[in-house]
Design a binder for these strands. Structure first.
Lengths: 188, 188
DNA sequence: CGTGTTATGTTAGTCACTAACATCTTAGTT
DNA sequence: AACTAAGATGTTAGTGACTAACATAACACG
């Protein structure tokens, strides 16, 4: 395998992946998560269900796929070392979600609305948060009991804010709501 | 239907439910969650899979069924009114888990260990926490954004502690670890 | 022009879960 | 004691997510 062939294949795979995801999200929006069977999604993307599962391990993964976590992790890493873990997380989330809100607002809103109305997806949110938490702990460079506790609690607080934001139709400032959630925690 | 007939049926249903649960937990322990199919569990409990699903809506529910939440809720309700929501939750969790640790330690430990090694069950933990949160908010008698944030964060912190406790084999004091988690949050 | 790699398709299966209908058990009635 | 209504359980047949084994087609390279 040479470089050029690798590029070609890689690009094709990305395209197929994007096609499947687009078809899935379109169908989810049109007929709902449950009615959109993997068969129908695969058909709409001109592949078979086997190929579908080669790109997404589960049906839930198409709906929950999330490209934002790495941004947050990067922001945590660039925080000054004298800040506490909690401060780093808080600042990174607020500024990260500010960016996300301005650049991917519609996509995020549609995704969160789908999650809100789909029990199967809501149930998988913990898994998502656990993944975010792993990235956060990694970015912090610690894995103590205290760090796990703090990151888990802050991520949960941020999730409440994000879901509330979506529930309200995304009219408020996302970063503002997340900040308000963190403030509520601090006031305890 | 008279009273006596109702009692009879109710008792029988409880017995069947307990039989199914016992068979399920035994099998989970022996051959693991995935290998213990609903068919095999039903067989072991001398019922059919249809009956199994009449008692437990999903296979996950047998493994995650939780009788402890009402105790916590009750403890929250009996806290003095001048305490903050966070204080009520914190105190209720610590003293509630103290009781649970002393009375149902082995059961809880086995259940949490199963959760730890079973991805399908870990993924459903959010749903469990969401249910706990509903009970907590209900016991507090509020449902503001702030209360949702605080309860969600504190429950997440408690979950970290409980899982860490189980991961360590249950040798530490459960209530002590939960208290340590809350303290870590406060120190932020 | 053959050759090996890689994406995709085909087929056949397992398992969780549901719905429609049949059967059996038991409580109350005559 | 026979009759009936209700409730619990079984039977059967299905759907849909997901997996594994093998077959085929497409393309890059020598």
């Amino acid at each position: 395998m040479t470089d050029s062939s690798g590029d070609w294949r890689a690009a094709k795979k990305l395209a197929t992946r994007a096609r499947i995801r687009a078809a899935a999200l379109k169908l989810f929006g049109e007929i709902g998560y449950d009615a959109a069977t993997v068969e129908r999604i695969a058909d709409a993307a001109s592949v078979t269900h086997t190929t579908f599962f080669r790109y997404f391990p589960t049906k839930e993964d198409v709906a929950l796929s999330d490209d934002y976590d790495p941004l947050i992790a990067e922001l945590i890493r660039t925080r000054p070392a004298n800040e506490s873990d909690a401060q780093k997380i808080r600042t990174a989330f607020v500024s990260g979600l500010e960016t996300i809100d301005s650049e991917f607002r519609d996509g995020l809103l549609a995704q969160m609305r789908l999650v809100l109305v789909t029990p199967a997806l809501r149930a998988r949110l913990w898994e998502e948060q656990a993944q975010t938490q792993r990235l956060v702990l990694d970015a912090l460079g610690t894995d103590t009991f205290e760090a796990r506790t703090v990151s888990s609690a802050l991520i949960a607080a941020a999730s409440v804010a994000i879901l509330a934001w979506a529930e309200a139709g995304g009219v408020d400032s996302l970063a503002g709501m997340v900040d308000r959630a963190f403030a509520a925690l601090e006031a305890e």
